[in-house]
Amino acid sequence: MRRFSWFNATSLTLGFAFLYVPMIILIVYSFNKSKLVTVWAGFSTHWYGELLSNQSMLDAAWVTVKVAVISSSIATVLGTMAAYVIVRAGRFHGRTLFSGMIYAPLVMPEVITGLSLLLLFIGLNVDRGVMTIVLAHTTFSMCYVSVVVSSRLVSFDQSLEEAALDLGCSPLQAFRLVTLPIIAPAVISGWLLAFTLSLDDLVIASFTSGPAATTLPMKIWSSVRLGVSPEINALSTIMIALVTVGVISASLVNKRQAVRQKREEQAAERQS
């Protein structure tokens, strides 16, 4: 059996300490009684209570979740379509431009994306608010979805789809009954990615929202610019906890699915 070498164990320990100690410190200080974030004055959950009674914070959280759910759902549909076009549609006029527009937002600085969308909305005289943030988030996250889904589509055996068509499926049925179940894991991770990107975005939301809609990152931003605040520490702790639970349970589900698939394959082999 392989063991850790001395060098590798050291570099991993230091590396993961670097990645995790800042977050642990943040979590520890969220339970600090003192308002001064630098002085430890004993354990308290005071700041969590403060946070949960802060109505504007709760409103912002609600706006953020709403934007994230709507935009990631639209982005998943559009991104899956775009992945199909890239992998399957073959040649058509403007293909180069299309794939350019799919990949460009992935590397575009957020300040540019935000600025350009804002100028568009102003040019069209659209009222800025939840809707405009949704449009902006959908646009950049559909590109991430399409990258994730197309990597799955490339490795997909197209003859399965053809078999379904031969057996009398309509193309839409073939997609629903054969293709979709196979690419589902990629579609789901695409949705999750789009959802997190939307939850996380500060810059593009700041450009494209109006006075009526404030997202959680915008709220956090306006309060941390003045310095560290214990309430934000509490909020961060809640968010870190949610993400950790989410990621771990997703990986457990994945693992279980892989095991089940393996078992089914073995059973099928034994039968034949």
Partner: peptide, 11 residues
């Protein structure tokens, strides 16, 4: 959250 990870270093 990216913002939170940057914020953690302020403290």
């Amino acid at each position: 959250s990216f913002l939170i990870r940057v914020y953690a270093w302020m403290g």
